[in-house]
C-alpha cells in the first residue's frame, strides 16, 4: 500500500469525519437556537393517540410504505429510495471496513452483497439523474446543489462498487478515487441537501408531536381496496 493510499484511508478520513462532526454540531446548535412552538390546548381526536404515539409513528413512517399515499401509490419510487439509501450505508460502511477490518472482505458473500447493493444504488442514482433532468416537475424544483449531490453520490457509488474487493493488484487508482471522494463527500454533506438526514428526526418529531396530539397520527385509513 502506498503512503498516499494509507493517508487517504486513515488520516484523510479522520480529518474529514472530524470536520463533518464539527459542522454538524454547529448546525444542530443553530437549529436548537430557534424556539420550539408550544401547544397549549388539550388533545383532540378519538383519545387513542397522543403526542408520544404520533412521534413514534412519524419516525417509523418511512419504514411503512403503506402509511402515506405518496409511497403507497409510487412504490417504484419508494423502492428506489430504500435501495439508494442502503447503498449510502453500504458505501460509507465500506470506508470503515477497508481501513479497519479488511479481513471481512475475505468473505465473497459480503463482497457480493455489498456490490449488489452499491451497484443497484449506482444504477438508481443514474436513473434519478435522468428523472431530474427529464421531468419538468423535477427540473422546476431542482437547484445546482440537487444535481451536483446526485451526481456526486452516483459517481461515488461507481467507485465504491469497484473498491469493494479491496484489491490493489491492478493499481490503487480506484481506491484512491473512492477514498478521496468519500472525504470530499463527508466535508460537503453538511453544506448540501444531503444533510437532510440530520434534520429528519427533528422535522418528523415535531410533525408527529403535533399530529399525535391532535389525533391525526397514526393515520386512520379505510381504503377502497380494503373495502373490496
Amino acid at each position: 500500500m502506498s503512503h498516499l493510499l494509507h493517508f487517504a484511508e486513515h488520516t484523510l478520513q479522520e480529518v474529514a469525519l472530524l470536520i463533518m462532526a464539527i459542522v454538524y454540531t454547529t448546525r444542530l446548535i443553530w437549529l436548537m437556537r430557534f424556539k420550539a412552538g408550544k401547544e397549549r390546548q388539550a388533545n383532540t381526536g378519538k383519545g387513542d393517540t397522543s403526542s408520544r404515539k404520533g412521534i413514534i409513528y412519524s419516525w417509523a413512517n418511512i419504514a411503512m410504505p403503506w402509511a402515506m399515499e405518496s409511497s403507497r401509490k409510487k412504490f417504484f419510487l419508494y423502492s428506489q429510495f430504500v435501495i439508494f439509501h442502503l447503498g449510502v450505508v453500504a458505501a460509507i460502511g465500506l470506508s470503515f471496513i477497508i481501513p479497519y477490518a479488511p479481513q471481512l472482505l475475505g468473505s465473497q458473500v459480503l463482497v457480493a452483497v455489498l456490490q449488489v447493493i452499491i451497484g443497484a444504488a449506482c444504477l438508481i442514482g443514474a436513473y434519478r439523474i435522468i428523472r431530474r433532468i427529464a421531468s419538468n416537475y423535477m427540473r422546476a424544483i431542482s437547484s445546482p446543489d440537487d444535481y451536483f449531490s446526485l451526481v456526486l453520490l452516483t459517481v461515488w457509488f461507481f467507485f465504491a462498487f469497484w473498491s469493494v474487493p479491496n484489491n490493489t493488484s491492478g493499481g490503487e487508482t480506484i481506491l484512491l478515487i473512492y477514498f478521496f471522494m468519500t472525504a470530499f463527500f463527508l466535508i460537503y454533506v453538511p453544506f448540501s441537501k444531503i444533510s437532510h438526514y440530520l434534520y429528519y428526526p427533528f422535522t418528523r418529531y415535531y410533525l408527529g408531536k403535533t399530529l399525535g396530539k391532535r389525533g391525526v397520527y397514526p393515520v386512520r385509513r379505510y381504503s377502497e381496496e380494503a373495502r373490496s
Binding site: L31, K35, I141, S142, D146, H196, Y199, F202, T203, Y206
Partner: peptide, 17 residues
C-alpha cells in the same frame, strides 16, 4: 421562525413525492 418551520425549510430534498 421557530424550530418546526426552520426544520421544514431546511429538510426538503426536492424528491417530488
Amino acid at each position: 421562525l421557530n424550530r418546526q418551520i426552520v426544520g421544514s425549510f431546511a429538510a426538503c430534498v426536492h424528491c417530488g413525492m
